[in-house]
C-alpha cells in the first residue's frame, strides 16, 4: 500500500437526488478528465428521495476544486464537499473469504483474534471462512496485509463512506 496515498487521495461527499442516471452524470464528469476513482459508495439516505455518494479520487488539490464546482453544476447534485482526512470520520466494510489448512489455522485465528474489535466471522467450514470487518481504510488495509499470508479467495471492499467530524466547519457547496 502506498504510504503517501492520502496526499493525492481526496474524498468527495455529495448529496444527490435519488434518480435514474444521477450516478452516471457524476462519474462521467470525473472519467472525462481521465481521473481514476479509487472507491465509490452510494446509497439512499434516511430520506429515500436523496442519496449520498462518497467518492475517493486520486487527484491533486487544484484540479479537484474545479471538479467539485463542475459536479455542483449538475442539476441533481444538491450539495457537495471535499473532506480532508483530518476533518472526516471515514469507514469502510470488507467481506473476505480465506482458505486455510490444518497447519496454519491457528495462525489465522491469531490474526482474527488481534483484530477482534472490528472483525466478525460470518461463516466457517473445515477449510475456509468468511469474515466481515468494518473500520477505517487503514484498518482494512492492515487486515488485508495480515490475511495475505493465507490464501485469500475474495476480498470485497465496499469503498469508503465519510462524514465531517462533529464541530468541523467543512466548506460545503449547497444550492441555496
Amino acid at each position: 500500500m502506498n504510504p503517501n496515498r492520502e496526499l493525492s487521495h481526496h474524498t468527495l461527499v455529495a448529496l444527490v437526488e435519488n434518480r435514474a442516471g444521477v450516478l452516471a452524470r457524476v462519474t462521467d464528469l470525473i472519467a472525462r478528465r481521465g481521473y481514476n476513482i479509487i472507491s465509490l459508495a452510494v446509497a439512499p439516505t434516511n430520506d429515500d428521495s436523496l442519496s449520498r455518494i462518497t467518492i475517493v479520487v486520486d487527484v491533486e488539490k487544484a484540479p479537484l476544486e474545479q471538479i467539485v464546482k463542475q459536479l455542483f453544476k449538475l442539476i441533481n447534485v444538491i450539495e457537495i464537499a471535499e473532506l480532508a482526512p483530518a476533518d472526516a470520520i471515514t469507514r469502510e466494510l470488507v467481506l473476505a473469504t480465506v482458505e486455510f489448512t490444518p497447519e496454519n489455522a491457528a495462525a489465522l485465528d491469531d490474526v482474527l483474534a488481534r483484530a477482534a474489535g472490528h472483525v466478525l466471522v460470518q461463516e466457517r467450514t473445515e477449510t475456509s471462512l468468511t469474515v466481515s470487518a468494518g473500520g477505517s481504510s487503514a484498518q482494512i488495509d492492515a487486515l488485508g496485509a495480515a490475511l495475505s499470508v493465507f490464501s485469500v479467495v475474495h476480498f470485497q471492499r465496499t469503498g469508503q463512506v465519510a462524514l465531517p467530524k462533529l464541530g468541523q466547519s467543512v466548506p460545503i457547496m449547497r444550492a441555496r
Binding site: 442539476i75 444538491i78 444550492a175
Partner: peptide, 8 residues
C-alpha cells in the same frame, strides 16, 4: 422547485 438548481 429543483433542490439542486438555484442559480445565484
Amino acid at each position: 422547485e429543483l433542490p439542486g438548481y438555484r442559480p445565484v
